[in-house]
Amino acid sequence: MTCQPALLSDAHVAHALQQLRHQPPLVHCMTNDVVQTFTANVLLALQASPAMVIDAGEAAQFSTIADALLINVGTLTGERRDAMQAAVTAAVAADTPWTLDPVAVGALTLRSDFCQQLLSATPTAIRGNASEILA
C-alpha cells in the first residue's frame, strides 16, 4: 500500500494564504535544534508568529494559548519527551490542532515508542518522509 499526499488546488492554497494574512496564527513549535531557526523564519515569512516554548510546565500552558502546535522529535530527550507529551495533552484538551513530525521513527526505539504513543492523541497532520510514515 502506498501513501499518496493529498493534492491541493491552486484555489485551496490561495484561500489558505488569504486566511493566514487575515488572522496570522501563533504557532507553538517544539522542534529540533537543527531546524528551529528555519522553522521560525518560514513561519515569519508567512506572517505567522512562531514561539519555541519547551519547558514542560510552560509548554502545556502555552499549547492552550497557541493557534497550532508542532511536535518534531528530531532531537528528542527524556525531558523534551515529557514536555511534548504535556503540550499535546493540553492542545488536545483545548482543541488546538497539532502536527507530528516523526523524525527517524522506525530507526530508534525511544522516538518510535513515543510517536506510537502520540498517535493515540490523533494529530491533525503528520509530516514525514516515506520511511517515517511507513513506520
Rank of each mutant, 00 (worst) to 15 (best):
T39F: 10
V88Q: 02
A6N: 09
T77H: 07
R81F: 02
A86V: 00
H28F: 02
A59N: 12
A40W: 00
M1N: 08
A91G: 08
M30L: 12
P24V: 11
A11W: 01
L110V: 09
A93D: 15
P25V: 03
I65M: 13
Q36I: 03
S63T: 07
A86R: 10
R21G: 10
A45Q: 14
L110G: 01
L8M: 07
G57H: 06
D10Y: 01
L20D: 02
P25L: 02
T77N: 06
V42P: 08
I133D: 05
M1S: 14
Q85T: 02
A60G: 15
V13I: 15
P5Y: 03
V13K: 11
A121F: 14
M84N: 01
A87Y: 02
A91N: 05
Q23T: 15
A104D: 08
L7W: 05
N41P: 12
A16H: 12
Q116V: 00
A45R: 11
E79F: 05
A56L: 06
T31M: 07
I54K: 08
C29V: 00
L44E: 02
L110S: 12
L69F: 02
A48F: 09
T99E: 00
V35K: 12
R111G: 09
E132W: 03
A107Q: 07
E132T: 04
V103W: 08
A6H: 13
A56W: 01
D95T: 14
M84F: 05
Q61S: 15
H15Q: 14
A56Q: 15
L44I: 13
A60V: 07
G106D: 08
D101C: 14
V34R: 09
S49L: 07
T109W: 10
D113M: 06
A6E: 14
V105T: 14
C3H: 14
M52E: 03
N32G: 12
R81C: 11
T75R: 07
V103E: 10
V73N: 08
P5Q: 09
V27I: 15
Q47N: 13
T77V: 03
I54M: 09
R111S: 07
A86I: 01
Q19M: 10
A68E: 02
L110R: 10
T99S: 04
P102H: 14
P97E: 08
A94Y: 11
D55S: 07
S63G: 12
A14V: 11
G78W: 04
I71Y: 03
L69W: 01
R111W: 06
D101R: 09
A93F: 01
T64K: 13
C29G: 00
S63M: 04
R80G: 06
N41V: 10
G74H: 06
N41C: 11
M1C: 03
S9F: 05
L69A: 04
T99I: 15
T37M: 14
A86M: 01
L69I: 02
R80N: 06
E132S: 04
A90P: 09
A93H: 13
C115F: 05
F38H: 07
P97N: 10
L118A: 03
Q18I: 00
Q61C: 10
A94C: 12
L134Y: 01
I126D: 06
S49M: 09
A68K: 09
L17S: 11
D55T: 06
I126M: 13
L7M: 08
R127H: 05
L20R: 08
G78D: 14
T77S: 15
A68I: 04
A60R: 07
